[in-house]
Design a protein around this nucleic acid. Structure first.
Length: 157
DNA sequence: GCCAACGTTGGC
DNA sequence: GCCAACGTTGGC
């Protein structure tokens, strides 16, 4: 059982989109970064929980929690020449990019913003999200960091 | 295999 | 919209 944080641009796919999806479930496609791919392929497990993070928006931060509900399988958009995620170098018999399905669990009681998380550098030491220049779209969350952020959510902002 | 150029991410 | 940080590409 591992914890994760996954980023999504709300204009492309928000926590509300996930909640509104059939079965509150959606495949999480478009990952085109090898480090992120390796997390998906090697370290994620069905049943893992993830913070759903809104990036590239007015107030970036954690907005919800979802569950990983599938094994890794090929991301079909890599073979679709009309997709912005098309990868001509990836072959169907050896797909380069993988994805998993995620399921809505709940929204957090409030937006736990990046700026708020950055106020807690000591308890969140080592958390990649608050490291300078971090661009990973998926990252592991240490159990103690997961618990700390849940406690932060319950506290008043 | 080095590294400059380029493209992308994502906070601000 | 700007730009710092970082990953990838491709010439050599």
């Amino acid at each position: 059982m591992n914890y994760w944080l996954i980023k999504s641009e709300p204009e492309a796919f928000s926590i509300d989109d996930l909640k509104a999806a059939p079965g509150k479930k959606e495949h999480w496609d478009g990952i085109r970064n090898y480090q992120a791919r390796n997390f998906i392929r090697d370290e994620m497990q069905k049943g893992d929980l993830a913070f759903f993070y809104h990036s590239n928006c007015a107030t970036p931060g954690i907005v919800g929690i979802c569950e990983i509900v599938s094994d890794a399988y090929p991301d079909h958009t890599q073979f679709d020449s009309n997709s912005r995620y098309f990868d001509a170098g990836s072959k169907p018999d050896n797909p380069r990019w993988l994805m998993r399905d995620i399921k809505y669990r709940r929204k957090t009681r409030r937006l736990v913003s990046l700026s708020e998380l950055k106020e807690h550098t000591a308890p969140l030491e080592g958390f990649p999200l608050i490291r300078r220049g971090n661009r990973l779209s998926i990252m592991p969350v240490a159990p103690e960091h997961w618990e700390f952020i849940l406690a932060l959510e319950k506290a008043e902002s």
